[in-house]
Amino acid sequence: MEQGGAHEIGVHKAAEYFGLTFNIETLYMTWISMAIVIVFAFVATRRLKMVPGGWQNFLELIVTALLDQIESAMGPKGKKMAPLLITLFLFLLVSNWLGLVPGFTSPTSDLNTTLGLALLVIALVHITSIVNKGPGAYIKHYFQPYIPFVVINLIEEAAKPITLSFRLMGNIFAGEVLIVILGKLVPMWIPIPNIVWLAFSVFVGVVQAFIFTMLSMSYLAGSMSDDH
């Protein structure tokens, strides 16, 4: 991993369109990830067979595992959220892994991506909460169990998207940073640390995608349950 690559650590190339600033590299990487996920889903679901094999089997493995989780966490009502959560997992998985390919960066190493996703999830949590419990009960539950708890409850709600986004971004960003640093520190003819770290980053990518998805699931489950 040479420094002559397309990016410097932690600096995202920006471009302006219509007077609005965009991190254009993050957007490119996001579109690549989206394309990979879509192609994967497309390939895996063409000629669906009774006895699954190949990509279909792989996709079914992920989808049924997530569906089981959704079913147990949210109950039957969670089915509506299943496409969102499955997409979230697949997209985050591909995004996290994309940064491990030389010349590419993870869209998830940009806080814009992770915070955007986290805000989307949290907004959804609040909307389902309002729809599910009614506006009165929704507002009331900030003042539970006593009125002064409103401060703690508000902090808790604010902490959710922040922790969600910074956890993912921090892990993936740190992974990319260390890949670059290892490439500089260790000569190319000692590849062991790089390989070990890359393997670990693959693992971290899965774990972080899973954590983000599971936490989103549990937040959504909390907004869907009638108690609390």
Partner: peptide, 23 residues
């Protein structure tokens, strides 16, 4: 910056496409 909004839109589009193509 505005990337955040773009990413949200990107993701919503991805959810729609994946639901239609795969799910």
């Amino acid at each position: 910056n505005w990337t955040l909004i773009a990413q949200i839109i990107n993701f919503v589009i991805l959810v729609a496409i994946l639901t239609w193509v795969g799910y």
